[in-house]
Nucleic acid binder design. Structure first.
Lengths: 151, 151
DNA sequence: TTTATAAATTATAATGATTGTAATTGACAC
DNA sequence: GTGTCAATTACAATCATTATAATTTATAAA
């Protein structure tokens, strides 16, 4: 974990930003809850446990900054809030998401399944791809089981 | 155009909804501006030209309704607003989008490029896919040219 | 044609996420 | 130590969207 904090610190410094205590606390929350997809509000509440004096606006600004530096991905699943996800070490792209329409759970797919598709877009449309976002909506394994039982 | 209005009317009726004048005016705006990705506010302003007495809330409700019936797709490109897109006749899925990071333009890909990927998700993750959203971020053909010239 | 009923709409207020602002703090260079 | 600039705080403001209550419209029964 310290290693990753260090890396992020360097990334900030390379753009002449500092890793302030507030920013560090925010990053630590994101690292601890890496599996989740936290909203700004949720991050704020968790950071408050470490650093009670932090303001909500600071959390927003920090997440925005981390997002610009591609340290986190800002994603939106269609509920009213933006969610923030640490980008995997070395990943060039957003990872993909499986959103369950029954229970709302979100699974992640880290592998990049879109190399072929990306090539098609590049060649056929002349569009130079920098990044992509792919979300599947459907029914997760667990909910499929439950539906099968009750019917 | 009248044909498509008719079809939508039938789709509404099949769920016992009516095609009220306000709803019809809204659908007509969407048909006329099919290439665009209008926000609720933009739809509202355009509908007002046809039916000045319409309220913003009605536009929201109508778009929500059309969205539930899968007549339009509600999409979100990360700016603060939801955008609404008529679904192509007979299309089972969202179409994909190419969002240019330089000029903000949005191109559409109607073909479904994800059949293979969908199969992988289904087989390897046991996730039953109902729909998907795919957006590429990058540089469009036009902007690539301009960058090439100025450099 | 009246009357009853439910759906749809309007105008307006409320909500909730996010952003802006002015004042304050803190770190670092001179 | 003093000045400077970035970062933060507390709070106000904004903007998209949703809820509410009153009114209108459409439809069907009497």
């Amino acid at each position: 974990m310290e290693h990753r904090i260090d890396r992020i610190k360097k990334q900030l410094h390379s753009q002449s930003y500092k890793l302030t205590p507030q920013r560090e606390a925010t990053v630590r929350v994101l690292l601890e809850r890496e599996e989740d997809h936290l909203s700004a509000e949720e991050v704020y509440l968790l950071v408050k446990e470490k650093a009670p004096e932090i303001g909500l606006a600071t959390v927003y600004r920090t997440l925005e900054l981390l997002s610009e530096l591609k340290i986190v991905d800002k994603i939106n699943f269609g509920d009213g809030v933006s969610r923030y996800d640490l980008r995997k070490e070395g990943a060039a792209h957003f990872h993909h998401h499986l959103v369950c329409m029954e229970c709302g759970s979100v699974e992640e797919i880290v592998e990049d399944l879109l190399d072929d598709v990306e090539k098609i877009v590049q060649d056929d449309w002349g569009f130079q791809v920098k990044d992509h976002r792919l979300t599947f909506h459907g029914v997760c394994r667990q909910c499929q089981k439950e539906v099968a039982q009750t019917s």
